[in-house]
Nucleic acid binder design. Structure first.
Lengths: 219, 219
DNA sequence: CTCCGCCTCCACCATCCGGTGGAGCCAGGG
DNA sequence: CCCTGGCTCCACCGGATGGTGGAGGCGGAG
Protein backbone atom coordinates (compact mmCIF):
# COMPACT_ATOMS: atom_id res chain seq x y z
CA UNK A 1 0.00 0.00 0.00
CA UNK A 2 1.21 3.45 -0.87
CA UNK A 3 0.39 4.78 2.59
CA UNK A 4 -2.53 6.70 4.01
CA UNK A 5 -3.86 9.38 1.65
CA UNK A 6 -4.95 12.48 3.53
CA UNK A 7 -6.79 15.67 2.59
CA UNK A 8 -6.40 18.69 4.85
CA UNK A 9 -9.30 21.13 5.16
CA UNK A 10 -8.71 24.46 6.92
CA UNK A 11 -9.17 28.08 5.95
CA UNK A 12 -5.90 29.11 7.58
CA UNK A 13 -2.86 28.62 5.26
CA UNK A 14 -0.57 28.40 8.26
CA UNK A 15 -2.55 25.58 9.80
CA UNK A 16 -2.56 23.72 6.49
CA UNK A 17 1.18 24.16 6.17
CA UNK A 18 1.69 22.98 9.72
CA UNK A 19 -0.39 19.88 9.23
CA UNK A 20 1.36 19.15 5.95
CA UNK A 21 4.68 19.35 7.71
CA UNK A 22 3.64 17.14 10.63
CA UNK A 23 2.08 14.50 8.44
CA UNK A 24 4.89 14.75 5.88
CA UNK A 25 7.27 13.53 8.55
CA UNK A 26 5.60 10.14 8.51
CA UNK A 27 6.68 7.93 5.64
CA UNK A 28 3.39 6.03 5.53
CA UNK A 29 1.22 9.16 5.30
CA UNK A 30 0.75 11.33 2.25
CA UNK A 31 -1.11 14.63 2.03
CA UNK A 32 -2.79 14.46 -1.37
CA UNK A 33 -4.87 17.59 -1.24
CA UNK A 34 -5.94 20.71 0.59
CA UNK A 35 -9.20 22.61 0.78
CA UNK A 36 -9.91 26.06 2.22
CA UNK A 37 -13.54 25.56 3.20
CA UNK A 38 -16.32 23.01 3.26
CA UNK A 39 -17.50 23.69 -0.25
CA UNK A 40 -14.00 23.29 -1.57
CA UNK A 41 -13.57 20.14 0.50
CA UNK A 42 -16.42 18.40 -1.30
CA UNK A 43 -14.65 18.89 -4.63
CA UNK A 44 -11.20 17.94 -3.44
CA UNK A 45 -12.42 14.81 -1.68
CA UNK A 46 -14.42 13.80 -4.75
CA UNK A 47 -11.33 14.20 -6.89
CA UNK A 48 -8.71 12.66 -4.62
CA UNK A 49 -10.75 9.97 -2.84
CA UNK A 50 -8.54 10.12 0.25
CA UNK A 51 -8.54 7.65 3.10
CA UNK A 52 -8.73 10.34 5.75
CA UNK A 53 -9.94 13.95 5.87
CA UNK A 54 -8.69 16.34 8.53
CA UNK A 55 -11.58 18.77 8.86
CA UNK A 56 -11.60 22.11 10.63
CA UNK A 57 -14.98 23.26 11.94
CA UNK A 58 -14.94 27.03 11.76
CA UNK A 59 -14.60 27.94 8.11
CA UNK A 60 -16.25 30.42 5.72
CA UNK A 61 -18.91 29.39 3.19
CA UNK A 62 -19.51 25.90 4.55
CA UNK A 63 -18.36 24.79 7.99
CA UNK A 64 -16.77 21.45 8.78
CA UNK A 65 -19.87 19.86 10.24
CA UNK A 66 -21.99 20.70 7.23
CA UNK A 67 -19.24 19.43 4.95
CA UNK A 68 -19.05 16.21 6.96
CA UNK A 69 -22.77 15.74 6.57
CA UNK A 70 -22.58 16.31 2.82
CA UNK A 71 -19.70 13.91 2.40
CA UNK A 72 -21.50 11.22 4.34
CA UNK A 73 -24.66 11.78 2.34
CA UNK A 74 -22.67 11.24 -0.81
CA UNK A 75 -21.47 7.94 0.61
CA UNK A 76 -17.83 8.85 0.82
CA UNK A 77 -15.47 6.12 1.99
CA UNK A 78 -13.12 8.68 3.51
CA UNK A 79 -12.91 8.68 7.31
CA UNK A 80 -13.26 12.12 8.75
CA UNK A 81 -11.35 13.55 11.68
CA UNK A 82 -12.77 16.76 13.04
CA UNK A 83 -10.00 19.04 14.16
CA UNK A 84 -10.83 22.12 16.14
CA UNK A 85 -9.70 24.50 18.84
CA UNK A 86 -12.90 24.31 20.83
CA UNK A 87 -14.85 21.31 21.96
CA UNK A 88 -18.34 22.19 23.03
CA UNK A 89 -20.54 19.28 24.01
CA UNK A 90 -22.84 20.01 21.22
CA UNK A 91 -20.20 19.99 18.51
CA UNK A 92 -18.76 16.73 19.76
CA UNK A 93 -22.10 14.97 19.76
CA UNK A 94 -23.11 16.44 16.44
CA UNK A 95 -19.86 15.48 14.77
CA UNK A 96 -20.02 11.91 16.04
CA UNK A 97 -23.65 11.54 15.08
CA UNK A 98 -22.73 12.71 11.62
CA UNK A 99 -20.28 9.86 11.50
CA UNK A 100 -16.96 11.52 12.20
CA UNK A 101 -14.36 8.91 13.08
CA UNK A 102 -12.26 11.23 15.17
CA UNK A 103 -12.47 14.45 17.10
CA UNK A 104 -9.17 16.09 17.96
CA UNK A 105 -8.27 19.37 19.56
CA UNK A 106 -5.67 21.50 17.85
CA UNK A 107 -3.40 21.23 20.86
CA UNK A 108 -2.87 17.57 20.03
CA UNK A 109 0.81 16.60 19.94
CA UNK A 110 2.16 16.10 16.41
CA UNK A 111 3.03 12.49 17.13
CA UNK A 112 -0.51 11.82 18.36
CA UNK A 113 -1.92 13.41 15.26
CA UNK A 114 -0.03 10.97 13.09
CA UNK A 115 -1.17 8.10 15.30
CA UNK A 116 -4.73 9.32 14.94
CA UNK A 117 -4.53 9.41 11.18
CA UNK A 118 -3.21 5.86 11.06
CA UNK A 119 -5.79 4.54 13.51
CA UNK A 120 -8.67 6.22 11.81
CA UNK A 121 -7.51 4.90 8.45
CA UNK A 122 -7.87 1.41 9.95
CA UNK A 123 -11.44 2.15 10.95
CA UNK A 124 -10.78 2.81 14.61
CA UNK A 125 -12.01 5.93 16.34
CA UNK A 126 -9.69 8.50 17.88
CA UNK A 127 -10.76 11.16 20.33
CA UNK A 128 -8.84 13.70 22.34
CA UNK A 129 -8.92 12.93 26.05
CA UNK A 130 -11.17 15.86 26.85
CA UNK A 131 -13.56 14.76 24.14
CA UNK A 132 -13.64 11.28 25.61
CA UNK A 133 -14.36 12.83 28.97
CA UNK A 134 -17.31 14.70 27.51
CA UNK A 135 -18.59 11.58 25.89
CA UNK A 136 -18.39 9.71 29.16
CA UNK A 137 -20.18 12.56 30.87
CA UNK A 138 -22.89 12.33 28.24
CA UNK A 139 -23.66 8.71 29.08
CA UNK A 140 -23.20 9.20 32.80
CA UNK A 141 -25.10 12.39 33.44
CA UNK A 142 -28.61 11.23 32.56
CA UNK A 143 -28.23 8.59 35.25
CA UNK A 144 -29.16 11.14 37.87
CA UNK A 145 -30.52 14.56 37.18
CA UNK A 146 -32.88 16.80 39.08
CA UNK A 147 -36.50 15.83 38.66
CA UNK A 148 -35.41 12.24 38.23
CA UNK A 149 -34.19 12.11 41.79
CA UNK A 150 -37.29 13.87 43.05
CA UNK A 151 -39.45 11.32 41.28
CA UNK A 152 -37.46 8.51 42.85
CA UNK A 153 -37.87 9.92 46.32
CA UNK A 154 -41.59 10.43 46.00
CA UNK A 155 -42.13 7.01 44.45
CA UNK A 156 -40.16 5.43 47.26
CA UNK A 157 -42.90 6.51 49.65
CA UNK A 158 -45.41 4.27 47.92
CA UNK A 159 -46.20 0.86 49.31
CA UNK A 160 -45.70 -2.23 47.18
CA UNK A 161 -49.31 -2.38 46.13
CA UNK A 162 -49.53 1.30 45.41
CA UNK A 163 -46.47 1.08 43.23
CA UNK A 164 -48.00 -1.74 41.19
CA UNK A 165 -51.13 0.32 40.74
CA UNK A 166 -49.10 3.41 39.83
CA UNK A 167 -47.25 1.41 37.19
CA UNK A 168 -50.50 0.16 35.75
CA UNK A 169 -51.93 3.67 35.74
CA UNK A 170 -48.93 4.97 33.82
CA UNK A 171 -49.39 2.20 31.30
CA UNK A 172 -52.66 3.87 30.46
CA UNK A 173 -54.96 1.29 32.04
CA UNK A 174 -58.37 2.16 33.45
CA UNK A 175 -59.29 1.27 37.01
CA UNK A 176 -61.36 -1.66 35.81
CA UNK A 177 -58.48 -3.03 33.76
CA UNK A 178 -56.11 -2.64 36.68
CA UNK A 179 -58.54 -4.43 38.97
CA UNK A 180 -58.73 -7.36 36.60
CA UNK A 181 -55.01 -7.50 36.06
CA UNK A 182 -54.18 -7.44 39.77
CA UNK A 183 -57.20 -9.55 40.85
CA UNK A 184 -58.65 -6.79 42.98
CA UNK A 185 -61.99 -5.10 43.38
CA UNK A 186 -62.41 -1.82 41.53
CA UNK A 187 -62.99 -0.15 44.88
CA UNK A 188 -59.58 -1.25 46.08
CA UNK A 189 -57.92 0.06 42.97
CA UNK A 190 -59.61 3.40 43.49
CA UNK A 191 -58.37 3.51 47.05
CA UNK A 192 -54.81 2.82 45.97
CA UNK A 193 -54.98 5.32 43.15
CA UNK A 194 -56.24 7.83 45.68
CA UNK A 195 -53.34 7.33 48.07
CA UNK A 196 -50.90 7.44 45.18
CA UNK A 197 -52.30 10.86 44.30
CA UNK A 198 -51.92 12.04 47.86
CA UNK A 199 -48.37 10.75 48.26
CA UNK A 200 -47.20 12.09 44.91
CA UNK A 201 -49.10 15.32 45.48
CA UNK A 202 -50.90 15.19 42.16
CA UNK A 203 -54.52 15.31 41.11
CA UNK A 204 -54.78 13.14 38.04
CA UNK A 205 -53.30 10.00 36.52
CA UNK A 206 -51.36 11.66 33.74
CA UNK A 207 -49.18 13.29 36.36
CA UNK A 208 -48.62 9.90 37.95
CA UNK A 209 -47.41 8.66 34.57
CA UNK A 210 -44.94 11.56 34.43
CA UNK A 211 -43.42 10.62 37.76
CA UNK A 212 -43.16 6.96 36.96
CA UNK A 213 -41.56 7.66 33.60
CA UNK A 214 -39.14 10.18 35.04
CA UNK A 215 -38.02 7.78 37.71
CA UNK A 216 -37.88 4.89 35.29
CA UNK A 217 -35.96 5.61 32.17
CA UNK A 218 -32.87 3.72 33.10
CA UNK A 219 -30.14 3.92 30.56
CA UNK B 1 7.30 12.58 42.63
CA UNK B 2 8.05 8.95 43.27
CA UNK B 3 6.11 7.82 40.22
CA UNK B 4 2.67 6.43 39.69
CA UNK B 5 1.65 3.95 42.39
CA UNK B 6 -0.39 1.09 40.96
CA UNK B 7 -2.37 -1.79 42.44
CA UNK B 8 -3.09 -4.78 40.24
CA UNK B 9 -6.29 -6.74 40.81
CA UNK B 10 -6.74 -10.08 39.03
CA UNK B 11 -7.46 -13.60 40.19
CA UNK B 12 -4.96 -15.09 37.74
CA UNK B 13 -1.39 -15.12 39.10
CA UNK B 14 -0.02 -15.22 35.56
CA UNK B 15 -1.87 -12.08 34.60
CA UNK B 16 -0.68 -10.31 37.73
CA UNK B 17 2.90 -11.33 37.00
CA UNK B 18 2.58 -10.18 33.42
CA UNK B 19 1.23 -6.79 34.41
CA UNK B 20 3.90 -6.41 37.05
CA UNK B 21 6.55 -7.09 34.45
CA UNK B 22 5.08 -4.70 31.87
CA UNK B 23 4.62 -1.88 34.35
CA UNK B 24 7.94 -2.62 36.04
CA UNK B 25 9.64 -1.72 32.77
CA UNK B 26 8.57 1.88 33.21
CA UNK B 27 10.77 3.84 35.62
CA UNK B 28 7.95 6.20 36.59
CA UNK B 29 5.49 3.45 37.46
CA UNK B 30 5.56 1.32 40.57
CA UNK B 31 3.36 -1.65 41.39
CA UNK B 32 2.73 -1.28 45.12
CA UNK B 33 0.23 -4.04 45.65
CA UNK B 34 -1.78 -6.95 44.25
CA UNK B 35 -5.20 -8.31 45.02
CA UNK B 36 -6.82 -11.57 43.91
CA UNK B 37 -10.46 -10.49 43.98
CA UNK B 38 -12.73 -7.54 44.63
CA UNK B 39 -12.96 -8.11 48.36
CA UNK B 40 -9.20 -8.30 48.63
CA UNK B 41 -8.88 -5.20 46.45
CA UNK B 42 -10.81 -3.07 48.93
CA UNK B 43 -8.29 -3.89 51.65
CA UNK B 44 -5.21 -3.47 49.52
CA UNK B 45 -6.37 -0.15 48.10
CA UNK B 46 -7.25 1.09 51.58
CA UNK B 47 -3.79 0.17 52.77
CA UNK B 48 -1.69 1.33 49.83
CA UNK B 49 -3.71 4.35 48.64
CA UNK B 50 -2.51 3.91 45.07
CA UNK B 51 -2.92 6.42 42.25
CA UNK B 52 -4.24 3.83 39.84
CA UNK B 53 -5.97 0.48 40.14
CA UNK B 54 -5.92 -2.03 37.30
CA UNK B 55 -9.11 -3.98 37.84
CA UNK B 56 -10.16 -7.22 36.22
CA UNK B 57 -13.89 -7.81 35.93
CA UNK B 58 -14.39 -11.54 36.18
CA UNK B 59 -13.22 -12.58 39.62
CA UNK B 60 -14.51 -14.83 42.42
CA UNK B 61 -16.15 -13.44 45.57
CA UNK B 62 -16.55 -9.88 44.34
CA UNK B 63 -16.25 -8.88 40.69
CA UNK B 64 -14.44 -5.83 39.43
CA UNK B 65 -17.53 -3.74 38.84
CA UNK B 66 -18.84 -4.29 42.34
CA UNK B 67 -15.39 -3.52 43.74
CA UNK B 68 -15.27 -0.33 41.69
CA UNK B 69 -18.62 0.72 43.09
CA UNK B 70 -17.48 0.04 46.63
CA UNK B 71 -14.26 1.94 46.20
CA UNK B 72 -16.08 4.93 44.77
CA UNK B 73 -18.61 4.81 47.58
CA UNK B 74 -15.75 5.00 50.04
CA UNK B 75 -14.53 8.10 48.25
CA UNK B 76 -11.27 6.63 47.07
CA UNK B 77 -8.95 8.97 45.21
CA UNK B 78 -7.52 6.13 43.17
CA UNK B 79 -8.40 6.18 39.48
CA UNK B 80 -9.63 2.85 38.25
CA UNK B 81 -8.86 1.20 34.96
CA UNK B 82 -11.08 -1.73 34.12
CA UNK B 83 -9.14 -4.39 32.32
CA UNK B 84 -10.94 -7.26 30.72
CA UNK B 85 -11.01 -9.70 27.87
CA UNK B 86 -14.55 -8.98 26.86
CA UNK B 87 -16.26 -5.69 26.25
CA UNK B 88 -20.00 -6.00 26.22
CA UNK B 89 -21.93 -2.77 25.81
CA UNK B 90 -23.42 -3.20 29.18
CA UNK B 91 -20.14 -3.63 31.02
CA UNK B 92 -18.62 -0.62 29.33
CA UNK B 93 -21.49 1.67 30.22
CA UNK B 94 -21.77 0.29 33.72
CA UNK B 95 -18.07 0.71 34.40
CA UNK B 96 -18.03 4.27 33.13
CA UNK B 97 -21.14 5.18 35.06
CA UNK B 98 -19.48 3.81 38.15
CA UNK B 99 -16.69 6.24 37.57
CA UNK B 100 -13.99 4.08 35.98
CA UNK B 101 -11.38 6.30 34.36
CA UNK B 102 -10.32 3.73 31.82
CA UNK B 103 -11.55 0.61 30.09
CA UNK B 104 -8.94 -1.50 28.37
CA UNK B 105 -9.03 -4.85 26.66
CA UNK B 106 -6.44 -7.40 27.62
CA UNK B 107 -5.10 -7.42 24.08
CA UNK B 108 -3.77 -3.91 24.65
CA UNK B 109 -0.12 -3.53 23.69
CA UNK B 110 2.24 -3.32 26.70
CA UNK B 111 3.41 0.14 25.67
CA UNK B 112 -0.19 1.37 25.48
CA UNK B 113 -0.90 -0.05 28.88
CA UNK B 114 1.87 2.02 30.39
CA UNK B 115 0.62 5.09 28.52
CA UNK B 116 -2.85 4.41 29.87
CA UNK B 117 -1.63 4.23 33.44
CA UNK B 118 0.21 7.54 33.09
CA UNK B 119 -2.69 9.28 31.43
CA UNK B 120 -5.24 8.02 33.90
CA UNK B 121 -3.00 9.10 36.77
CA UNK B 122 -3.20 12.62 35.34
CA UNK B 123 -6.97 12.49 35.38
CA UNK B 124 -7.48 11.79 31.72
CA UNK B 125 -9.63 8.92 30.49
CA UNK B 126 -8.24 6.05 28.43
CA UNK B 127 -10.35 3.66 26.45
CA UNK B 128 -9.51 0.89 24.02
CA UNK B 129 -10.56 1.76 20.48
CA UNK B 130 -13.38 -0.76 20.44
CA UNK B 131 -14.64 0.62 23.71
CA UNK B 132 -14.59 4.12 22.28
CA UNK B 133 -16.59 2.80 19.35
CA UNK B 134 -19.18 1.41 21.72
CA UNK B 135 -19.34 4.65 23.61
CA UNK B 136 -19.91 6.56 20.40
CA UNK B 137 -22.60 4.10 19.45
CA UNK B 138 -24.22 4.58 22.83
CA UNK B 139 -24.57 8.33 22.42
CA UNK B 140 -25.48 8.09 18.77
CA UNK B 141 -28.00 5.31 18.84
CA UNK B 142 -30.62 6.78 21.17
CA UNK B 143 -31.16 9.44 18.54
CA UNK B 144 -33.53 7.03 16.86
CA UNK B 145 -34.76 3.79 18.31
CA UNK B 146 -37.91 1.82 17.79
CA UNK B 147 -40.96 3.18 19.58
CA UNK B 148 -39.37 6.61 19.51
CA UNK B 149 -39.61 6.71 15.73
CA UNK B 150 -43.14 5.36 15.80
CA UNK B 151 -44.14 8.08 18.24
CA UNK B 152 -42.58 10.70 16.01
CA UNK B 153 -44.43 9.49 12.97
CA UNK B 154 -47.77 9.39 14.69
CA UNK B 155 -47.28 12.78 16.30
CA UNK B 156 -46.34 14.25 12.94
CA UNK B 157 -49.89 13.56 11.79
CA UNK B 158 -51.28 15.99 14.31
CA UNK B 159 -52.11 19.53 13.29
CA UNK B 160 -50.50 22.47 15.06
CA UNK B 161 -53.40 22.97 17.41
CA UNK B 162 -53.76 19.31 18.17
CA UNK B 163 -50.10 19.12 19.04
CA UNK B 164 -50.45 22.02 21.49
CA UNK B 165 -53.38 20.28 23.08
CA UNK B 166 -51.53 16.97 23.20
CA UNK B 167 -48.61 18.65 24.93
CA UNK B 168 -50.93 20.20 27.47
CA UNK B 169 -52.63 16.87 28.04
CA UNK B 170 -49.29 15.22 28.72
CA UNK B 171 -48.46 17.94 31.17
CA UNK B 172 -51.35 16.60 33.19
CA UNK B 173 -53.79 19.45 32.59
CA UNK B 174 -57.56 18.96 32.57
CA UNK B 175 -59.62 20.09 29.61
CA UNK B 176 -60.76 23.17 31.48
CA UNK B 177 -57.21 24.17 32.31
CA UNK B 178 -56.13 23.62 28.72
CA UNK B 179 -59.03 25.74 27.50
CA UNK B 180 -57.98 28.59 29.74
CA UNK B 181 -54.34 28.33 28.85
CA UNK B 182 -54.97 28.29 25.10
CA UNK B 183 -57.90 30.74 25.22
CA UNK B 184 -60.33 28.22 23.81
CA UNK B 185 -63.74 26.92 24.73
CA UNK B 186 -63.82 23.63 26.62
CA UNK B 187 -65.80 22.17 23.75
CA UNK B 188 -62.99 22.96 21.34
CA UNK B 189 -60.44 21.35 23.58
CA UNK B 190 -62.56 18.24 23.77
CA UNK B 191 -62.78 18.13 20.00
CA UNK B 192 -59.01 18.40 19.66
CA UNK B 193 -58.39 15.83 22.34
CA UNK B 194 -60.79 13.56 20.50
CA UNK B 195 -58.95 13.84 17.21
CA UNK B 196 -55.64 13.34 18.97
CA UNK B 197 -56.99 10.07 20.37
CA UNK B 198 -58.11 8.98 16.94
CA UNK B 199 -54.87 9.89 15.21
CA UNK B 200 -52.68 8.32 17.87
CA UNK B 201 -55.00 5.32 18.10
CA UNK B 202 -55.36 5.52 21.86
CA UNK B 203 -58.32 5.74 24.21
CA UNK B 204 -57.18 7.85 27.14
CA UNK B 205 -54.89 10.75 27.94
CA UNK B 206 -52.26 8.81 29.82
CA UNK B 207 -51.42 7.04 26.58
CA UNK B 208 -51.13 10.39 24.85
CA UNK B 209 -48.60 11.39 27.49
CA UNK B 210 -46.63 8.22 26.72
CA UNK B 211 -46.37 9.09 23.04
CA UNK B 212 -45.41 12.67 23.65
CA UNK B 213 -42.75 11.66 26.14
CA UNK B 214 -41.37 8.95 23.90
CA UNK B 215 -41.07 11.31 20.99
CA UNK B 216 -39.70 14.07 23.14
CA UNK B 217 -36.79 13.02 25.23
CA UNK B 218 -34.08 14.47 23.08
CA UNK B 219 -30.60 13.69 24.15
C1' DC C 1 -52.21 -6.73 74.29
C1' DT C 2 -52.78 -2.63 71.77
C1' DC C 3 -51.71 0.47 68.39
C1' DC C 4 -50.39 1.38 63.76
C1' DG C 5 -49.79 0.71 58.90
C1' DC C 6 -51.08 -1.82 54.95
C1' DC C 7 -54.43 -4.15 52.18
C1' DT C 8 -58.96 -5.04 51.10
C1' DC C 9 -63.50 -3.51 50.20
C1' DC C 10 -68.13 -0.49 50.46
C1' DA C 11 -71.28 3.69 49.34
C1' DC C 12 -72.22 8.25 47.65
C1' DC C 13 -71.52 12.03 44.69
C1' DA C 14 -69.75 15.79 41.89
C1' DT C 15 -67.02 16.23 38.16
C1' DC C 16 -64.40 14.95 34.28
C1' DC C 17 -63.87 12.16 30.20
C1' DG C 18 -64.62 10.17 25.84
C1' DG C 19 -67.93 9.28 22.00
C1' DT C 20 -71.39 10.94 18.79
C1' DG C 21 -73.41 13.99 15.69
C1' DG C 22 -73.71 18.14 14.47
C1' DA C 23 -72.56 23.48 12.79
C1' DG C 24 -70.27 27.79 11.16
C1' DC C 25 -65.89 30.10 9.56
C1' DC C 26 -61.89 30.65 6.78
C1' DA C 27 -58.04 29.80 3.58
C1' DG C 28 -56.01 27.32 -0.19
C1' DG C 29 -56.36 24.40 -4.35
C1' DG C 30 -58.57 22.24 -8.09
C1' DC D 1 -66.70 28.62 -7.59
C1' DC D 2 -66.93 24.79 -4.81
C1' DC D 3 -64.56 21.40 -2.02
C1' DT D 4 -61.40 20.14 1.46
C1' DG D 5 -59.15 20.54 5.74
C1' DG D 6 -58.21 22.92 9.88
C1' DC D 7 -60.15 25.54 13.78
C1' DT D 8 -63.86 26.93 16.51
C1' DC D 9 -67.90 25.80 19.10
C1' DC D 10 -72.63 23.30 20.69
C1' DA D 11 -75.58 19.47 23.10
C1' DC D 12 -76.17 15.03 25.03
C1' DC D 13 -74.94 10.84 27.35
C1' DG D 14 -72.92 6.92 29.73
C1' DG D 15 -69.16 5.62 32.05
C1' DA D 16 -64.77 6.66 34.36
C1' DT D 17 -62.56 9.37 37.69
C1' DG D 18 -61.41 11.70 42.11
C1' DG D 19 -62.88 12.97 46.92
C1' DT D 20 -64.88 11.63 51.33
C1' DG D 21 -65.86 8.75 55.04
C1' DG D 22 -66.07 4.30 56.80
C1' DA D 23 -65.07 -0.80 57.93
C1' DG D 24 -62.83 -5.33 58.69
C1' DG D 25 -58.53 -8.31 58.68
C1' DC D 26 -53.73 -8.97 59.52
C1' DG D 27 -49.02 -8.64 61.02
C1' DG D 28 -45.32 -6.26 63.29
C1' DA D 29 -43.57 -2.89 66.93
C1' DG D 30 -43.91 -1.18 71.29
Amino acid sequence: MAGVRVVVVDDDPLVRAGLRMILGGAPDVEVVGEAVDGQDALDVVARELPDVVLMDIRMPRMDGLAATRRLKERGTTARIIVLTTFDTDEMVLTALQLGAAGFLLKDTAPADLVVAVRRVALGEPMLSPSVTTQLIAAVTRPADDGRRRKARILLARLTEREREVADAVSDGMTNTEIARSLHLGVATVKTHVGSVFTKLEVTNRVQVARYVHDAADER
